[in-house]
Every structure is written in C-alpha cells, then in structure tokens.
C-alpha cells in the first residue's frame, strides 16, 4: 500500500526523534537523464521522502527559480507521462522511500483523473500535492486517488485559520504541507519561531505530520525548522543549483546531491544539537 510508505517513514523517524528531510526536484530538469541521476541519488544523500515536481507552463504558485526549472524541463520534452516513468524507474530500485508528486491541476485533469491515479499508483507514487485545487473543488480528485490508495496531500498557509484547517483535513492524507511564508516558492525566508505555533495547530487539527516548505534555503534554516516540524522541504535552493550548473555547462547532479547531503545532515542533527 502506497500511503503506507509515507506513514512508515514518519513512524520510523518519530522513533528516531527527528524530522524528515524532503528535497523537491523538478522532474526532467534540466533533462531526463540528469534528473534521473539526481533522483536516484537522493536517498543515499539523505532524503527521507522525495517531492518530484510535475512541470507546468503556468506555475503561478512558484517563484522565478522553480518557474525556470519547469521551463527547462518542458523544453527538454518532459510531460506527465515522463514524470510517471521517472517515478516508476525510481520505485523499481527503491521500495521504501516515499515519492510525492507536486504540481498543477490542468495536466492531471487533461490526463484523466482516474487514469492518472491508476498510473501513479502503478508507478509507486505515494501522494499528490495539487497547488491550485482548493478542498472545495477536490472531491473528484480525492475520489480517484482514494480508489488507488494514493494520498491527497493538502496545503496550509499562515492565513489558514482553525475553521479552515478542519476543511483542509477532510479527505487529506500522508502529511500536511505547511507553506511557511505568504507568497510563492523560493522568495521569502521562513521564520521557524514565527510559525512554530501554527505548525502545532496544523498537526493537532489534522492528526497528520506537518511538512514545512516554501522558504528554506540554507542548512541552518533547515535545522531550525527541523526542530518544530515533522518534515523539512527544500526545493528552490536545489533548483537554483541546477540553473547555476547549467549556466556553467557543468553536470548539476554532484552539486545538488552534495547540497542535499549537507541539508540532510543539518536536519538529522537539529534536535540533538538544538
């Protein structure tokens, strides 16, 4: 069961007394082969859970860094089928690490909700984060995913109040993705002290682990967030390294995996040293 991989991951880390480190990479960025080499290297570099971006032409919740990552991936020919193929290839070699896809609704709607859910489950995908589908509009998607055992992971933000959290919790699974800043990915910096209460509230209201993302760019910041959250998501900082390597005509994979290793180490030692 795929939802089981996410639960097992958080249960094991709870026993270790630490937060999960969850890198986000855009599928197909900057090309399929490089993205594959990064993806398959993530668990060894210290990723506990992987968020794999579904590239979209109009990523309105993303800042410039992830926008450009999506544009590179699309230009290199990545599409929804290609993302599922990458996930399937990853799962063939790694039966344990949860993989969550994150993206926008139109390509999924276009694929067909039931067909997508079936293909995602078959590829060993554990959850789906849809940035532009509010709970009020997500029943058809939730029906399709539930039938295939893929978790629908919902977002909460600093503007999400108690009443709204109850709506967010309904039919959601896996974990709650707490957006730590008001705004888009990779622009503002998260403030762990400011969001600690909100993270606790989200955990209490939903009964799910809380992953924090959208504003964590350094190992130090990752460690701070790791003290209050169940998972730390880092995305734009990794996508930016890909952009820089591409600009210098270097292979991005070693640099991205080194950064992942450093951040994973910071997350692992956060609660001990903190």
């Amino acid at each position: 069961m795929s939802a089981g991989r996410i639960e097992a991951c958080f249960a094991a880390l709870a026993r270790e007394g630490r937060a999960a480190f969850a890198p986000y990479v855009m599928a197909g960025d900057p090309d399929t082969d490089t993205a594959w080499r990064i993806l398959k290297g993530l668990p060894a570099a210290g990723a506990d859970l992987i968020e794999l971006g579904l590239p979209f032409s109009d990523p309105m919740a993303d800042g410039p860094t992830v926008q450009r990552g999506a544009a590179r991936a699309l230009a290199a020919g990545m599409d929804t089928r290609g993302v599922l193929a990458l996930a399937r290839r990853f799962r063939a070699g790694d039966p344990m690490t949860p993989v969550v896809l994150m993206g926008y609704y139109n390509p999924i709607l276009n694929f067909g909700l039931d067909a997508f859910a079936a293909a995602a489950a078959e590829a060993g995908v554990d959850g789906l984060i849809m940035v532009d589908v509010p709970p009020e509009e997500s029943d058809p998607l939730a029906d399709a995913l539930e039938a295939r055992g893929v978790a629908l992971i919902r977002l909460a933000t600093p503007t999400t109040d108690e009443a709204r959290l109850a709506i967010v919790a309904r039919r959601s699974g896996g974990f709650v993705y707490f957006v730590s800043v008001t705004g888009v990915t990779g622009v503002k910096e998260a403030d762990a002290a400011a969001i600690a209460d909100q993270v606790t509230r989200a955990r209490d209201a939903t009964g799910l682990p809380v992953a924090v993302g959208f504003g964590i760019r350094t190992a130090a910041r990752a460690a701070e967030v790791a003290r209050i959250a169940d998972a730390v998501v880092v995305g734009s900082a990794l996508v930016e390294e890909i952009a820089q390597s591409v600009a210098l005509k270097r292979d991005p994979a070693p640099k991205v995996l080194d950064t992942v290793a450093a951040m994973a180490q910071a997350v692992r030692s956060a609660r001990v040293s903190g």
């Binding site: 032409s57 699309l74 709607l109």
Partner: peptide, 20 residues
C-alpha cells in the same frame, strides 16, 4: 478544450499534455 487555469474551469488553449 476544457481545463483549469487561474482558478477557473473553462475552455483553454492547451497541448496534448495539458500545458497552456
């Protein structure tokens, strides 16, 4: 074809993959 963009469900110019 029908699709979702900018929070509205309507007709959209899109490719086979649902990219706008």
């Amino acid at each position: 074809r029908p699709g979702v963009l900018h929070g509205a469900h309507s007709y959209l110019l899109q490719d086979d993959d649902g990219q706008i």
